[in-house]
Design a protein around this nucleic acid. Sequence first.
DNA 1: CGAGTTTGACCGGCGC
DNA 2: GCGCCGGTCAAACTCG
Length: 269
Amino acid sequence: MDLLAVHDYNAPLFDWLPCAADHDHVFHHHAPSPDVPDSSEVLNTPPSPNLSSISSSSNEATATVSNNVEQHSGKPPNIEQAEEEGGNGVRDEQDQDKTDKQVKPKKKKQKKQREARFAFMTKSEIDHLDDGYKWRKYGQKAVKNSPYPRSYYRCTSAACGVKKRVERSSEDPSIVVTTYEGTHTHPCPASSRATFAFLPHPPPTAASFASPHFLLPPHHQPSPFSSTTNYINTTSFAHLGHDPLSRDHGLLQDIIVPTNLRKEEKDSM
DNA sequence: CGAGTTTGACCGGCGC
DNA sequence: GCGCCGGTCAAACTCG
């Protein structure tokens, strides 16, 4: 399972970001989702079925990846939203009814299609790592089996529907688990001092995370974190699967963790 | 005053 | 069908 999951992440995943294209280190970002039913607004035209091989066996493991990709098929949330807001009148009307309980129309009937997600762990004391984008917090929830809450952020850029979740590992409170979901539809507003400044311009996206380059050890890059920040030892990663690169260097800046994997991790506890 | 955060409530999906 | 839980909304609040 773990192996599978990790495998997923070493495999090129999706073309998350348009701007990922000018990424020098672009690893292969072809978006997978061979079976992505075409949608009107798919940003990442997914030509290459890379996942097919992966997704054959483990539903769980692939769920997050391929599934997400598939889910992409629907339409990005922002689009959905746009649509919804296109039906602004609807919303307004509903607003008038809102005194009831049906406060909002929310998502329409259609099964909610989720954007591809990508989680990674960072050892940091800071919860909300600045990745160069501007995020607005729109929710926070207590996490089951964890004393730490999970925060929900959305990219503040108007048309950008990218979301991210930030939570602390209940196991190791010093580890922050960040899950990105969606594709930025705009350039990174700030990249210099950002947490991910060590990354080539395009800030963290699933694609960039998926890229092995993202796994460069700390000494290869200026640490965006405070001096108190530690790095997760590769052993952790080894436990997740493997990564020759990181193994070589012994340390790892961030650990890329498939969301499903984390789930499985939990399950196995 | 606008932008961002907090927080309680709502909703939908999923497992039992 | 029911309850649990994750995700989202939006009003109220805070801060610059």
